[in-house]
Write a protein that binds this DNA or RNA. Structure first.
Length: 226
DNA sequence: GCGACAG
DNA sequence: ATCTTGTCGC
């Protein structure tokens, strides 16, 4: 697909986003990440308990890379392989965290927003750096944050300090989500690292998968002696 | 034209 | 993202 065509699709589908979080009781959440090696991409989906952050299920999918990295078009590179892995998940998470932007995007349609429409689930974008928007540096204390705005002063996300004196992360809602809930839920997933658990674990697992060091599993699979 | 630019 | 080991710092 040509970039101009992909951009047209983003402008068309952003209209379908719902930036409101349905009042659901969040029990299980998911973290997604994609890694690359040679000519292959490896997508990982990790299911966690929202209250304990315990890992309940891990599934992955490998396929050839068929799209280049183009700023603003990340979902066309990582989306397909993610959807392949998503189909393997047996549990049904209430929220899905992605390693990238939600609506904090040039056309308001980043990876988390795009995938949210596909899977019809509330999604949140958690990026390590900014793609689009203007903001003021948040205070150095953990848990503090400032907002991300478009050039027209429209609020599109938050710049969150998850760990004191460490670089902030960029949080923005995808689909079926709002900024306040996105920030609140993201902070609840932070343990002792800058990156919240869903995305952090997905990243660790995806690194192991491409090295052939990870086996998929789901709760109950654990083999134990005794 | 110049700078910015998720992963 | 990836190419890559040890090393400085909280």
């Amino acid at each position: 697909m040509k970039p101009t065509e992909a951009i047209k699709i983003q402008k068309e589908f952003r209209e379908k986003l719902t930036l409101e979080f349905p009042a659901v009781n969040v029990k299980k959440i998911a973290g997604v990440d994609v890694s690359f090696k040679d000519n292959f991409s490896f997508a990982i989906v990790v299911i966690l308990s929202f209250s304990t952050l315990e890992v309940l299920e891990v599934k992955f999918f490998k396929r050839k890379i068929d799209y280049p990295y183009i700023p603003g078009l990340l979902s066309f590179r990582e989306g397909p392989v993610f959807l392949n892995a998503w189909e393997k998940i047996k549990m049904e998470p209430d929220i899905v965290f992605f390693d990238g932007q939600g609506i904090a995007h040039p056309r308001g349609f980043g990876l988390a927003a795009h995938m949210g429409l596909f899977i019809e689930k509330p999604t949140i974008g958690v990026a390590k750096s900014k793609l689009y928007g203007v903001y003021e540096e948040p205070p150095q204390e953990s848990g503090k944050y400032t907002y991300l705005y478009t050039k027209n002063n429209q609020k599109i996300g938050a710049v969150v300090r998850t760990v004191a004196n460490q670089n902030p992360i960029f949080v923005s809602p995808g689909h079926l989500m709002d900024i306040e809930n996105a920030v609140e839920m993201t902070l609840k997933c932070v343990r002792n690292h800058r990156i919240p658990e869903p995305t952090r674990l997905a990243h660790i697992y995806s690194q192991k998968v491409k090295k052939g060091e990870l086996k998929e599993f789901e709760k109950g699979d654990q083999i134990r002696l005794i």
